[in-house]
Amino acid sequence: MFEFIQRFFGKPTSSATAKERLRLVLLSDHLSLAPDVVEALKHDLIEVISRYVDVDASNCDVTFEQREKQVAMLANIPILGMRARPKPPAPPPPSPPSAQAVTEPTAAAAGGGRKKPVRKRRRKALSTNTAPQAT
């Protein structure tokens, strides 16, 4: 009954805490990335994207999530506006500034992670899912 009251007041159960700890530890195991590396990745990611569009760097959110058979990287980067590109690598797509700029989730196999033998079913694939926010 005491536990019921605990749950009622929103204190997470110890199994919920265990589940969350497990999720985080496996994430770092699978990616073989230390938290500071994740932070550096986030920094560089924002830097690259801001070469093309104005982003709201203070409200960027980069998280990792265990998907069915891989770890997905989810980046939520609010776009403030388009930036006049100094040298477009290709003819710019005729899209209005408010439209979705980068939407295609691109899956690129990333190596590393578990030492040999690499298991196919859990190979780490970083899929960048950049969901821009309309300004």
Binding site: T13, A16, A18, L22, Q66
Partner: peptide
């Protein structure tokens, strides 16, 4: 009994990871 009271990972919790 511990699983029911939220004090132990359930079989589903374990196998959500291991699959």
């Amino acid at each position: 009994a511990l699983v029911r009271r939220g004090k132990m990972l359930s079989v589903d919790d374990v196998n959500a990871i291991l699959r």
